[in-house]
Computed example of a mutant assay.
Amino acid sequence: MSTTKNKTGAAKGKRSRIYWTVPAVLVAAVVVVLLAKWATGLSGVQSFLASYPGHSELPAGAPVGFPAWLAWQHFLNAFFLLLIIRSGWQVRTSTRPGGYWTRNNKGLIRTKTAPSKISLELWFHLTLDVLWILNGLVFVILLFATGQWTRIVPTSWDVFPNAVSAALQYASLNWPTENGWVNYNALQLLTYFATVFIAAPLAFITGLRMSAVWPKKANGLNKAFPIEAARAVHFPVMIYFVAFIVVHVFLVLATGALRNLNHMYGGSDDVSWVGFWFFVASVAVMVAAWFLARPLFLRPIASLMGKVTSR
């Protein structure tokens, strides 16, 4: 009886925190906007905004526009990342796995010890991780091979004051002028850089540390990088990606949806519906994958790579 009461009390406590979180976030947002509007009215801040309009100049010869490969990479990154977040959350919260998977100890990869059994959700999460990493390697190679890296890698120190300027403009609701076809604003540039070159590698290395692939007998390596540290970083990185996706999609739709979608999906700087319909198609594929990513459909695929059991 006491256990039931404890569970009920815990559930009420969680609901209470959620009820208080929403108005607290709204109040904080209003305060930030009011402070930003007050700050941008000061003569010193206005002078700062005039000196740093919110974007840094790109290096000479920087490419203009987005090639077709970048549209495919954008879709695949979003597709894999969405399912990685879904499966990662299932791994973290699921109490009754939809099945178990055991790797076949034969073929190219053989070990002296018996393969460990993992949940079907963890198998799906790890498989998506591998596909995401491979796609990310292709993305980075093409990024540097085509010069597109200049659009998301800082090349001058003034990117930092310009990022502060862009943040002030966003916060005051007087948003910086968007011209993503030519050049991102400094805050966007730093955010994309952090996502590609900091958050993604952190997700990879911490996930690798927690996986069965990591060498268990490498005492020095395990002491330098304990699994507890990997766990402490891996989940917050996932939260970062969720926040990035939410803000990114919101700003794409709020700062000229048709033009922005045409940049990435239509391959032009036109204001037309071409990119929008490609975007709708990509969302439909993601939604379908979200609902198909369940044990009924995962078991046949997992059985091609190992043994699937119910317990």
Results as ranks from 00 to 15, higher is better:
F193I: 03
A203H: 10
A186F: 05
Y184L: 11
N183M: 01
A186E: 00
Q188A: 11
A194I: 10
A200Y: 12
A199T: 13
L189K: 13
T191K: 00
L190A: 07
P176C: 09
T177K: 13
I198G: 04
L202N: 04
F193E: 04
F193T: 06
L190C: 05
V182L: 10
E178C: 04
Y184P: 04
A194D: 11
L190H: 04
W175Y: 08
I198T: 12
Y192W: 12
N185A: 03
A200Q: 10
W175A: 01
V182K: 12
N185H: 07
P201E: 13
T195N: 09
A203T: 13
T177N: 08
A200F: 15
N179V: 03
N185E: 07
W181K: 06
V196Y: 15
T191L: 09
P176K: 00
L202M: 13
A203D: 07
E178G: 01
A199V: 15
P201D: 10
L190I: 14
N185V: 01
T195I: 14
A194V: 12
L202E: 08
A186W: 00
T177I: 08
F193A: 12
L189P: 05
L202R: 03
V182R: 13
P201L: 15
V196R: 02
V196E: 06
Q188Y: 02
A194R: 05
P176H: 06
V196S: 03
A200C: 11
N183D: 13
A186K: 00
A200I: 11
A200H: 08
T195W: 10
W181P: 00
V182Y: 12
P201R: 12
N185M: 04
W175D: 00
A200R: 09
E178S: 09
N185S: 06
L202T: 10
V196D: 08
E178V: 12
I198N: 01
N179F: 07
W181D: 01
V182F: 09
Y184E: 07
A199F: 13
A186V: 00
I198Q: 02
T195R: 02
Y192T: 00
A186D: 06
F204I: 14
A186R: 02
A194E: 11
G180T: 03
Q188C: 01
G180C: 01
E178H: 08
W175T: 04
T177V: 09
L190Q: 04
F197Q: 08
T195D: 11
I205Y: 11
W175P: 03
L202S: 09
I205F: 14
E178I: 09
Y184D: 06
